[in-house]
C-alpha cells in the first residue's frame, strides 16, 4: 500500500512504524505537517495516490485540522477526525465514555473559578483538576485543600490560555500505585502494561515503571466498548483499578507505544501495521479470510 505518515517529529514510535512498513515493502510518504499548505478547495498534491494516511501529529491542533483536511480530500485517515476530536478533549472524552456506559471517573466541568471551586468542594479533598487539552500528565493538579484550590484556580484563570478557563474537575481515584495502558486497534487489544509510580501521576512520560499486564475477559470487553465510544481506531486506553472495579479515565488517539513495545513480548509496531493493512484494503482481507 501507499501510506502517508503525518508527522512533525520522528520519535521512536514513528521510527518503529516506518521501519516495519518499509520492511514489508510498503511505499511510505512522510509528510511533515510543519511544511504543509492545505487548500480548502484544492487538495494538497502530497496526498495524491495515498491508500491511507496515518496521523502521527505531535500537536493536537495540527492533528485535528490535518485529519479534517484528509477527509475533505477523500483520503482515508487513521485515526478519523471524529475520533481525534473526541480524544483530544478531555470533556468530549468523558462524555463519550459516559454516554456509552463505560465506567469513568466522576467529573464536573465549570466555566468560572467560582463555579469550579464549588465543584471542588462538592467532590471534597483530594480531587483532581486537569487541563482539557494536554498530555503526558502535564499541568494536572491534585488538590488537597481549599487554599490550594483557590490558588490553582486563580493561576489558571489569570495566566492560562482560554482553554484553561474550562475547569475540568474530577474525583481522585484511589488506585494501587499503578494504572493500565492498553493499545488497541478498533477495540482489539494489541498489548497492555501497567505503569507504576510512587507519584499519583503514573504516566510513562513522568518516569513511571512499566511491566507487562495480562488482560482478562472483563477488561477486553471494556477496552472494546471504550474504543467504540470514541469512534475506534488505533488507540491508547488508560484504565485504573479501584474498589468499584475498573474505570477508564482516558482514551488517546495518537498513541505512543515505545514504552509498551519495550515492556511486552508483542511486536507492537508489527501488530499496528497488520491493522493498517487490513484498514487500507478491507475487501481483500475479507476475501482471504
Amino acid at each position: 500500500m501507499n501510506v502517508g505518515i503525518l508527522y512533525s517529529r520522528i520519535r521512536k514510535d514513528e521510527k518503529l512504524l516506518l521501519t516495519e512498513l518499509r520492511e514489508r515493502d510498503h511505499d511510505v510518504e512522510k509528510i511533515d505537517v510543519r511544511k504543509l499548505r492545505l487548500g480548502v478547495s484544492t487538495p494538497n498534491e502530497r496526498f495524491d495516490g495515498l491508500d491511507l494516511v496515518v496521523d502521527r501529529c505531535l500537536a493536537t491542533s495540527r492533528s485535528l485540522y490535518a485529519t479534517r483536511f484528509c477527509e475533505s480530500y477523500g483520503v482515508p485517515v487513521v485515526n478519523s477526525h471524529e475520533t481525534a476530536s473526541i480524544c483530544a478533549d478531555k470533556v468530549q472524552n468523558s462524555l463519550a465514555l459516559e454516554e456509552a456506559g463505560v465506567p469513568t471517573p466522576a467529573t464536573t466541568v465549570a466555566f468560572t473559578k467560582e463555579a469550579a471551586l464549588e465543584a471542588i468542594e462538592a467532590f471534597g479533598y483530594p480531587c483532581v483538576l486537569k487541563p482539557v487539552v494536554g498530555s503526558w500528565g502535564r499541568l494536572m493538579a491534585k488538590i488537597d485543600s481549599r487554599d490550594a484550590a483557590e490558588a490553582i484556580l486563580e493561576h489558571k484563570a489569570t495566566l492560562g490560555h482560554y482553554e484553561h478557563k474550562v475547569f475540568y474537575v474530577q474525583e481522585f481515584v484511589e488506585k494501587p500505585g499503578r494504572d493500565i495502558r492498553v493499545v488497541a486497534t478498533d477495540g482489539e487489544p494489541v498489548a497492555a502494561m501497567v505503569r507504576s509510580s510512587d507519584h499519583w501521576i503514573t504516566n510513562a512520560a513522568k518516569g513511571a515503571e512499566t511491566d507487562v499486564f495480562e488482560l482478562d475477559a472483563e477488561l477486553e470487553e471494556l477496552v472494546s466498548r471504550a474504543s467504540d465510544a470514541v469512534g475506534g481506531g488505533l488507540l491508547g486506553i488508560d484504565l485504573m483499578e479501584s474498589d468499584g472495579g475498573y474505570t477508564v479515565h482516558e482514551v488517546n488517539h495518537t498513541v505512543e507505544f515505545k514504552a509498551l513495545d519495550s515492556a511486552v513480548d508483542v511486536d507492537v509496531a508489527a501488530a499496528v501495521v497488520d491493522w493498517l493493512e487490513r484498514t487500507a484494503e478491507p475487501d481483500s482481507v475479507e476475501v482471504s479470510a
Binding site: 517529529r9 520522528i10 505531535l58 500537536a59 493536537t60 491542533s61 487539552v133 494536554g134 498530555s135 503526558w136 502535564r138 490560555h161 491508547g236 488517546n252 488517539h253 495518537t254 498513541v255 505512543e256
Partner: peptide, 23 residues
C-alpha cells in the same frame, strides 16, 4: 536535536515543547 538534512547530515536544536503536544 532534529535531523533536518541527510546530505550533508545536519542537526538543529529541536523545537521547544508546546502545550498541546502529546498523544
Amino acid at each position: 536535536l532534529e535531523v533536518v538534512s541527510l546530505d550533508p547530515l545536519t542537526l538543529e536544536e529541536a523545537p521547544e515543547l508546546e502545550e498541546d503536544w502529546g498523544e
